[in-house]
Design a protein around this nucleic acid. Structure first.
Length: 496
DNA sequence: CCCAAGGTCAGCTATATTCC
DNA sequence: GGAATATAGCTGACCTTGGG
């Protein structure tokens, strides 16, 4: 395959590329050889993410007063530039921010390096939260971070430094901002990971050597698409950092896959992953939905049949029954939140709490415009009769018991009163269970949250479209289907 | 870079049923 | 009656979606 890349590009292995290489050699090789990976996350969201991590990093720096900051080559925003600047800074201060280490084709930048009497201690700052309470602390730190640290320690040592340990700086999940400014020592928590990192040292050295050898090759590794292509949340092996852009339909790997690739079946788990991904290019059409040995779940079986027949699979009867439970008037609530913030901005907030800055409620008095009975929300403006929709000004006081009031928080007695007064509002205020709302009711009352304009809203969850849910389980579901909860809105199940 | 919630699954144990 | 097998109930881990 002809790939647009510059074979002469010679790159060092960085922390990021090392971790990508642990996920997939091909992904690392492509990056190393200059093949641009399609973006998985849109730029605006990425910017938010980067901002969040920078915010936490700068707060973490406050834990080390007098620390010197190193900048990248070409930036020259501080007197300490790159590897040489790092050496000088380490000689002059007790702590160094963004310390650069390089050795033998390896590069690493450590967020914070502490200079101790016996040697260096490396800190990695993550903007994820950590629940410090409980008796099982160790298990909750993402093992991926240990590999991250272990790589940094490896490079720092290869560069000739004595490294005595490494740790993580994370956000305390339970932190609640008080009235004053955020204090770093209150919102951040330090976790020593020296033992875990030491246990990985030998494997990191082996893997780095293997990666360097692989990356020198001129042919793309032959890894097949599989579970590795997608990032996981808590992966014990710590080897799946993120969704791979090459896996997208227009990516290097994605465009080689059939349209209905078997690996795209829902909820593939256990042995079925190997079954599906072990055959390159396996199509859903090629699967036998009734093969008992395959142990397809009901959902998977229906997807296979749907693809094979090219027919939509719609459970009309249970959908109809569910829709019939709704009573007019229907309420639709929409809430707008600010971008989530790692460091809480306002008193009473925790890390990543969100501030709702606008809410809106629309009430449909009767089935819209005689549209034929089936259309609950075929579109906020096109099919709904304007005359049958009451617009309610956003931001009315929470004490107002009219339909325009703010959605009640969990445990709110107003919510109880509402339910008692009218059993028909069960479809309204879907976000009422959000504890964030409860925390910010005072803000809203105090006028902190500005009133918004009248909004005719379309809530994505409330706006269940008749053609929306497809490939759902039939209503004859197994009772022992697992530990998942019942949807909060689900009525007692009516068995046939 | 994250968070939360709903849903799903494989595998586990306890119990019930079937077979010898 | 005991072993083998089937089923129900449960759970931790995982998947998916939705938010910015």
């Amino acid at each position: 395959m002809a790939l647009a890349h510059d074979a002469s590009v010679h790159r060092s292995i960085t922390k990021t590329s090392y971790l990508l290489g642990r996920q997939c050699p091909r992904r690392q090789w492509l990056g190393h050889h200059g093949v641009v990976e399609p973006a998985v996350t849109e730029a605006a969201v990425l910017a938010l993410q980067i901002e969040a991590s920078r915010e936490v990093e700068s707060l973490a720096a406050e834990l080390f007063p007098g620390a010197l900051r190193v900048c990248r080559e070409g930036e020259a925003t501080t007197p300490y530039v790159g590897v040489e600047g790092t050496k000088r800074a380490l000689a002059e201060a007790q702590a160094v921010l963004q310390a650069h280490f390089e050795a033998d084709g390896l590069a690493a930048i450590s967020d914070i390096v502490e200079v101790r009497a016996e040697g260096l201690y490396l800190w990695e700052v993550k903007s994820s939260t950590y629940e410090a309470e409980g008796d099982d602390d160790e298990a909750r730190a993402n093992p991926l971070y240990d590999w991250d640290l272990a790589y940094q320690v490896h490079v720092a040592r290869e560069a000739g430094n004595v490294v005595i340990g490494a740790g993580l700086i994370l956000l305390r999940k339970e932190y609640v901002r008080g009235g004053g400014p955020v204090r770093a020592e209150e919102v951040l928590i330090r976790l020593d990971r020296s033992a875990e990192v030491a246990a990985l040292a030998a494997r990191v050295a082996e893997e780095v050597a293997a990666q360097q050898s692989m990356l020198r090759g001129s042919t793309m590794p032959t890894e097949l698409p599989g579970p590795r292509c997608k990032g996981g949340r808590k992966v014990a092996a710590g080897n799946r950092p993120s969704d791979c852009g090459h896996f997208l339909p227009h990516g290097v790997c994605g465009r080689e896959l059939p349209v209905f690739w078997a690996g795209s079946l829902p909820n593939l788990a256990g042995g079925k992953i190997a079954l599906v991904t072990g055959t390159p290019g396996l199509k859903i059409e090629d699967l036998d939905p009734n093969d008992p040995a395959a142990k397809w779940t009901e959902t998977q079986r229906r997807v296979i049949e749907g693809v094979q027949t090219r027919d939509e699979v719609v459970d009309h009867v249970p959908l109809r029954e569910k829709l019939d439970e709704l009573e007019w008037p229907l309420s639709f609530v929409d809430l707008e939140f600010d971008p989530t913030m790692a460091i809480p901005r306002h008193p009473g907030m925790r890390p990543y709490d969100r501030v709702p800055f606008q809410w809106a409620l629309a009430i449909e008095e009767e089935c819209g415009g005689g549209a034929g009975g089936g259309a609950l929300l075929p579109g906020a403006h096109d099919s709904r009769s304007e005359s049958s929709v009451r617009r309610v000004p956003a931001g009315r006081p929470a004490t107002d018991r009219s339909p325009g009031r703010a959605p009640p928080g969990r445990g709110d007695d107003g919510a109880e009163a509402d339910r008692e007064a009218s059993g028909r509002r069960r479809h309204g205020a879907p976000a009422g269970a959000d504890p964030t709302l409860r925390r910010h009711r005072e803000d809203r009352k105090g006028g902190l949250l500005p009133p918004g304009p009248d909004v005719l809203l379309l809530d994505q969850k409330a706006g269940t479209r008749p053609d929306g849910p497809r490939l759902r389980r039939p209503r004859h579901r197994k009772r022992n289907a697992g530990g998942g909860g019942v949807a909060p809105s689900a009525a007692p199940r009516r068995e046939p």
